[in-house]
Design a protein around this nucleic acid. Structure first.
Lengths: 180, 180
DNA sequence: AGGTACATGTAAGCTGTTACATGATTTT
DNA sequence: AAAATCATGTAACAGCTTACATGTACCT
């Protein structure tokens, strides 16, 4: 699996950034839908990358905040990123809390079940709407556009599936609760 | 995120099993598509569950292999599982090696890029075919059927997206390689 | 004056992975 | 007789999360 160091290298390959900015990328940026990292992992990762010579720290020009540290990827860093990128990717697992829970869905209180499914549909519809707007406004690299489209396809498939089948599971839960 | 202990409880809620059998569930069973755990996590997890009284070990009847340990979930274990199941599920991230790699896809050698996408399409088509057969033969709980259908919907969406858009990304990679 | 956003980092603890170590049973 | 599968476990390590600790700058 891709580790935080590689995630940071990926962000830095698109331009200089501070630890804080890298984190924002994981929250809002194009990588946000399939990665996640807090300060507690980013700062140690940057330290490691520095030690390994994969990134360098830029001398801060006096005008900005003095404690902000800008990092830049080195040629060795680009090479390391390239190596990771060309490794055969591990098969994806759909690690999902929701799917685990729903695989026992028929055992849950029908109302609760209906609510968590409904909530998740709303979440996805919101994300889809956001992505659709972003896709038209924001400029992206071809890779980012491709992946964004892929994410959109997945979110749509899940939202549609949940909408079309939720009643089946809720009905099963209802039956189950009447038996007990 | 769902931990291995909960995963084990989930398997045991459907019937007694040994550590080895639980692991097989994660490899072949209905949970296999969105969970993953090796012996190194399962055995310590079972120990913890035992210590916490959430499972008990059954006395082995002499006929089987003497070293096989069968575990059974206790009422306390069912309660703990239920608690986890009714917690609000964390939002799902699409943690995916492939998506990370493809977000830099335009920078990769076009042939390599085309191959990894093609391989992944083949992987998914194979999984889809297997699930379609299983769905008709194997008996499942309503929850499992629901989740299996959801997995199928996702795999189909991804496979179709990759088939329909791979040429765009490969074309971008080709342009990029000619510029350099 | 207070709140929010910016900004960096450390330490403890938890979890999980990988590799190792062992041995029985079944199939070929 | 060898290979595969069944079967359990430990130890070292890697990695991430959470909570803590600190301080600045801007906006209202």
């Amino acid at each position: 699996m891709i580790d935080v160091k590689t995630l940071c290298l990926g962000v830095l390959s698109r331009g200089d950034a501070s630890g804080y900015e890298i984190r924002k990328e994981f929250e809002d940026g194009p990588l946000s839908h399939f990665s996640d990292a807090g300060f507690g992992s980013i700062y140690p990762a940057l330290r490691r990358l520095l030690d390994d010579g994969l990134i360098v720290m830029l001398p801060h020009n006096g005008d900005g905040r003095p404690d902000k540290k800008l990092y830049r990827i080195t040629p060795a860093g680009r090479h390391a990123l390239y190596q990771t990128l060309t490794r055969t990717p591990a098969p994806d697992k759909l690690r999902s809390d929701l799917m685990f829970i729903l695989s026992f869905g028929h055992l849950l209180p029908p109302r609760h079940l209906d609510r968590i499914i409904g909530d998740r549909i709303a979440d996805y519809r919101r994300i889809i709407a956001t992505l659709e707007v972003e896709g038209e406004t924001t400029l992206r690299t071809p890779g980012e556009r491709f992946v964004e489209g892929m994410g959109l396809a997945i979110y749509r498939a899940v939202a549609t599936y949940l909408e079309e089948h939720r009643h089946e599971l809720v009905a099963a839960a209802l039956m189950e609760s009447q038996v007990a």
